[in-house]
């Protein structure tokens, strides 16, 4: 397949995933920030959200003060913020449009429909109901996109490049979220229950749409070390680092089957997946959660650029 096409599909997958993540992050942060301050509700919640989205520096350059209204505007419809939902869908569509023939009609209509929908929101966020509709629209777009690709696309290179982009982006998002909140997840000698941090933990779970999943998996109250376990090591949790890492290996396997060749990206991905598969959450805590996450993020980034080099995007 054309390298340009592969690159466009890879980034299409990434941008759709990022748009979905930012909408969930915004949604969860809204809930947290709206709580009474005695429960952790605070404008500071937005600082964490901006950092998790990777745009805290860009935000500070634009706005002197941390305020909910400006943070929301920045994350939702800002035409120049590379992590705003608007930007992500715009980029997703540009990538899709450039490789129109590599997509099925259903997939194209899902993306183009979402983009046309987005045009109605303009570039200024005018009210909370508008924001709610936007968040719903972005989530629906990601679901429609995933559904359309799953149901209608050939399982060939193009499909795997798209999935690969989504998996790399997803791993990056979960790792960023963990990095912002890691201090909340460290085990402490604290009486079980009644912690004010409960709402911080549920915010993390909500962002990766795993609050209900948590209860199914652990059948226990929300405990920070279990939240970390779920998001890092649980392979049945689709946004966990371990699940992303094994997905990445699987997609690279499929691509290698087609070409009959493996490369540097493959070796990096297998190493990362094996490390997660053999790890226990206690030993991660013992060696330092923050260092673990920082290493993971760096390796994931290296993997992303190695894929780009290997397939000549």
């Amino acid at each position: 397949m054309l390298s340009r096409t592969a690159g466009n599909l890879f980034w299409l997958g990434r941008y759709i995933e990022r748009a979905d993540f930012v909408s969930r992050l915004t949604d969860a942060t809204l809930r947290l920030a709206a709580l009474p301050s005695s429960y952790g509700g605070d404008v500071g919640a937005w600082s964490g959200a901006l950092t998790a989205a990777g745009v805290n520096v860009a935000y500070a350059e634009r706005y002197p003060l941390l305020e909910e209204a400006t943070a929301l505007q920045f994350l939702s419809l800002d035409p120049d913020n590379p992590s705003s939902m608007r930007w992500c869908l715009e980029k997703a569509r540009n990538n899709a449009r450039a490789v129109r023939t590599a997509l099925t009609i259903e997939t194209w209509e899902a993306i183009n429909g979402a983009w046309l929908d987005l045009q109605r929101f303009g570039t200024r966020l005018d009210s909370r109901p508008t924001l709610n509709r936007l968040l719903e629209a972005v989530k629906a777009a990601a679901l429609a996109f995933d559904g359309a690709t799953h149901r209608s696309m050939l399982r060939d290179d193009g499909y795997w490049f798209m999935r690969l982009g989504a998996a790399i982006e997803r791993a990056d998002n979960t790792a960023r979220l963990l990095d912002v909140k890691y201090h909340l997840l460290l085990p402490r000698d604290e009486p079980v229950g009644g912690s004010l941090d409960y709402f911080q933990w549920t915010t993390i779970l909500r962002t990766v749409s795993a609050l209900t999943a948590y209860r199914h998996v652990y059948r226990d109250g929300v405990k920070p070390w279990l939240v970390a376990d779920l998001l890092i090591l649980n392979r049945s949790m689709p946004r966990s680092l371990a699940a992303c890492a094994s997905d990445i290996v699987r997609y690279l396997d499929r691509l290698a089957e087609a070409s009959g060749r493996r490369g540097a990206a493959h070796r990096l991905a297998v190493t990362a997946a094996n490390r997660l598969a053999g790890a226990r959450i206690e030993s991660i805590f013992a060696a330092g959660l923050h260092e673990f996450i920082t290493d993971f993020t760096a390796e994931n980034n290296r993997l992303g650029s190695t894929i780009t080099e290997q397939y000549l995007f």
């Binding site: 397949m1 390298s3 340009r4 592969a6 691509l255 070409s259």
Partner: peptide, 10 residues
């Protein structure tokens, strides 16, 4: 003097 396209497999 031969035309090529850039693909993921070279």
């Amino acid at each position: 003097d031969v035309l090529f396209m850039r693909t993921t497999e070279g």
